[in-house]
């Protein structure tokens, strides 16, 4: 199985995850979208030295994965390519910000180290929350939810078609790579001399396929609106959960809950 085929399977696995049934999947797409946006906004707004306060924010994605019945490891394995990039944010902070904060044994922890870890955690938490949303909501429902919060139609159509186009692209890459390797035995990958032709053909083929897909959608009444995702109405239960998560997140933003709990015992 080549890389393109593996990526295609990964993409389809996301569709399968989103089609599962769990208490978290049953929340309305709009409430999940609002909850995720609020969570991301609050998480990113934490001060760069507020590491202990930020730690509380891990509870939302962890509970989310539990209720969605999706192992957290799925998120990390699917996002393995992106996580190092997110983790790399703030890597240089310890070099520029060397004010000592406290010591652990012989090691002096500087404010640069704290801000680096805070930034890394912020990135990882936001990715976890975004992945949770994607893994529990079908792309069409998500686009419908975006339309309901007045996201321009052109953007939602773009998101939807990009998602569909990606699978078409991967499908074609996989077919072409297989056809190439069958006629170039012993060769590893595609020879540099064939890259131009390969990419040109790939573009033409995927444009044809994408055209055909779009035509198939138009032939069945698609006009940029997501009527078929409209059946999943918001329920009181969904909004109650969203409200609870938002209140918890806002509270965590203004009250350092781990520090508060520690102060109760020490």
């Amino acid at each position: 199985m080549d890389n393109a085929e593996r990526a295609l399977l990964d993409l389809r696995a996301m569709d399968e995850l989103a089609s599962m049934d769990s208490p978290y999947h049953r929340l309305s797409p709009l409430s999940k979208l609002v909850m995720t946006i609020v969570y991301i906004l609050i998480t990113t707004s934490f001060h760069k030295y507020d590491l202990t306060g930020l730690l509380f924010m891990v509870i939302f994605p962890l509970l989310g994965y539990q209720f969605a019945m999706i192992p957290v490891s799925t998120c990390f394995s699917k996002l393995r390519g992106v996580l190092p990039l997110v983790a790399a944010v703030g890597l240089l902070n310890p070099l520029f910000d060397r004010v000592p904060v406290f010591r652990i044994g012989r090691i002096t922890v500087t404010s640069g180290m704290v801000s680096m870890i805070t930034l890394m955690l912020k990135g990882v938490f936001c990715l976890m929350a975004s992945f949770l949303l994607m893994a529990t909501t079908q792309i069409d429902d998500l686009c419908r939810a975006l339309r309901r919060i007045h996201c321009p139609r052109v953007i939602t159509s773009l998101i939807l078609l990009t998602f569909r186009y990606t699978s078409v692209l991967l499908d074609e890459v996989s077919d072409m790579t297989q056809a190439y390797s069958l006629r170039a035995p012993g060769q590893k990958g595609i020879h540099i001399s064939a890259w131009g032709t390969f990419l040109g053909q790939l573009l033409l083929r995927t444009m044809d396929r994408a055209d055909a897909l779009y035509e198939a959608m138009m032939l069945r009444g698609f006009s940029g609106e997501f009527h078929y995702a409209a059946g999943k109405r918001s329920s009181r239960y969904s909004w109650a959960v969203t409200l609870a998560v938002c209140i918890a997140a806002v509270t965590a933003r203004y009250i350092n809950i781990p520090a508060f709990l520690t102060s109760l015992f020490i």
Binding site: D140, E225, H227
Partner: peptide, 9 residues
């Protein structure tokens, strides 16, 4: 999902 796409539209 594919089957209801058209009728719902």
């Amino acid at each position: 999902d594919d089957m209801i796409f058209g009728p719902v539209n």
